[in-house]
Design a protein around this nucleic acid. Structure first.
Lengths: 341, 341
DNA sequence: GAGAAAAATACAAACGTTTGTATTTTCAGC
DNA sequence: GCTGAAAATACAAACGTTTGTATTTTTCTC
């Protein structure tokens, strides 16, 4: 008996019914605030429920309602502050529709992503939001008639809320080009191959500026800070170094700046570094980072709003979200300074 | 009909039973891999289930099993990388026991914390982990016989996994004292009043060093970077400035360093700043931050292990976890330099 | 105060599983 | 081919809600 105190017995609707001397169905309706039950009874039941410590059983409820009132969010990396605002947007919008949200962090592992979606499926969530999904599109397409599923930033998805990644990256490139840089490096992130809008923007901007694309200037960030060390070394080893680098995100840019400094290169005097995401700390590192801010809050909101329309059986139009904004701070400057030193 | 494609009809065990021409109970047992059903039947059912796209209904399952196989985690701030490792520990350990985990981020809002716990209760999760809870202990005590609930770092909780916060903070203070600092500031965090082990350690270290406690040197970080600006101004306004500051966490320390620099104070020459948490970027900011690292992974593991023992009806001993470690980097130095400038 | 309409409540089936028990089938051994 | 045990399967109740329908109670009208 001491063994498992919490399994004793949860108060159910039946218990309340017995205590109030009514039928369970009356209790349900009373708790729902239905007009069909007399005010006096309703109040009696409400207070009884409170005092007996009644906790509704979602399992039973979900079973008969055939929906859980939950929406699932699959986040690739909850550490990345980039997603914090996104989460806020989701939650605020979900609250409006009486939905509760559940988050699973996949750490960018595709298997975990599938596991997460599977769990949500079993939980009969009302919808799933998958920002920056790693898994192949075919997988998600197969799910489309099992559950409403909206992607964030995946061009080819059936249901999606997109932010113009290419536009944001072009802004960075234009900024660097306007500063006079001609030799610009690019740091790729751990994206699925063939789905690299930043890379696309990078090349397009170079093309338009009439600059030849040099594969030597492409580096890869694998999500760890160690890999930024490597990138620094690769940069150093180059015969002709880039005068500016566009980093996959702020974490990689920060790591890179730090690593470059260890090798006695200063930013932006010797080399400019721009990031992407505008995380909380990016204004705080030294030098403060030039970067791109995304309307993450709106993206979160729109995802849920989209999901909700889907649930209502509406056929929502792809929502309009604001464009990314360039934030110029101090980690980028003209290339001339570099030649001076 | 186009209206809500995903609500058409989920494949149930009954459907499989019909297709395989057996009873639903046989399907259940087959899917469980029970020896009680003939191998041939078992295989037929398995392949049938796969091909029909059967997804178990957790609601129904939870209803009869009276447990969900889920464990809930209530995180105060998923942005804080501090919790990333914690999450990994939780997940790895949960996987060992065939438990799935659900995370809710409360953003430090107490109401959200309660909402989260309530949702978990309704979901009939097998256990809840609440690291660094904000809510009052009485609230959680009331839940103790409804569900296994383990706290991380809450001295007074019935079930807890603790890391010696005081020890870690003492390490920082000793480090600063050994460097020769006598006038040391302290930045409080958004903790519930009366539960401030870091503050406790701060005062104790001062006492032991025979240094008088000066309330002027206590500042408050509210979680936003803006408040670090304020702190910097307060420091500047002081007649007699501290030569070192022990910050509530790395984010506040990073913000403070940045703000101090804006006011032409350099770190550590003019003032030393130490943080707490050892987040990913703390080695990356300039100067790299002296801080305290916690064994977050182990804390996560132990939480689940503890929960699991509780679920087994065992009476687990409070688990031993490693002590926090001081990480000395470059944001702290001797106070002499300060007088030079 | 009888009857009808309206209000309040009770009944019963269903949601998709699981599990203890009962029933049928299989297959030795003779 | 009969018996009996063992193996395989079927039956039925239960988990805690919800909801359409049926029933009872109240209230009003004349």
């Amino acid at each position: 008996m001491e063994k498992a105190r919490w399994q004793t017995h949860r108060v159910t609707i039946k218990d309340i019914a017995r205590a109030a001397n009514v039928d369970p169905s009356t209790v349900t309706r009373a708790l729902q605030g239905s007009e069909r039950v007399k005010t006096a009874t309703r109040e009696k039941i409400a207070s009884l429920a409170a005092e007996m410590g009644y906790v509704p059983d979602m399992a039973a409820r979900t079973l008969v309602n055939r929906r859980s009132g939950l929406i699932g969010v699959v986040i690739p990396d909850m550490t990345n502050p980039f997603f914090a605002e996104f989460g806020r947007g989701i939650e605020d919008e979900a609250a409006k529709h009486d939905l509760r949200i559940l988050i699973i962090d996949t750490r960018g592992v595709e298997a975990a992503e599938r596991e997460a979606v599977k769990l949500f499926l079993e939980l009969k969530v009302d919808g799933v939001v998958v920002p920056m999904a790693r898994g192949p599109q075919e997988y998600y397409d197969g799910l489309n008639d099992a559950i409403p599923l909206v992607h964030v930033n995946r061009e080819e998805a059936k249901h999606r809320v997109n932010c113009d990644t290419v536009h944001g990256s072009i802004l960075v490139m234009q900024h660097l080009l306007e500063l006079g840089h001609r030799r610009i490096g690019f740091v790729r992130g751990p994206a699925p191959p063939g789905r690299e809008p930043k890379m696309f923007a990078y090349r397009q901007a170079l093309d338009e500026a009439g600059i030849h694309y040099d594969p030597e200037l492409i580096f890869t960030f694998d999500g760890t800070l160690e890999s930024t060390e490597l990138i620094a070394e690769q940069v150093l080893a180059l015969d002709e170094r880039p005068t500016a680098i566009f980093g996959h995100n702020d974490v990689s840019a920060a790591g890179l700046i730090h690593a470059l400094r260890d090798h006695k290169l200063s930013v932006p005097q010797d080399i400019s570094v721009a990031g992407h995401d505008d995380i909380q700390l990016s204004g705080c590192i030294d030098p403060p980072l030039t970067t791109v801010a995304w309307p993450m809050y709106e993206l979160g909101q729109q995802s849920v709003r989209y999901l909700y329309s889907l649930g209502q059986g509406k056929k929502p139009r792809a929502p309009k979200v604001p464009l990314p904004r360039l934030i110029v701070r101090e980690s980028t400057g003209g290339p001339k300074a570099a030649r001076k030193s």
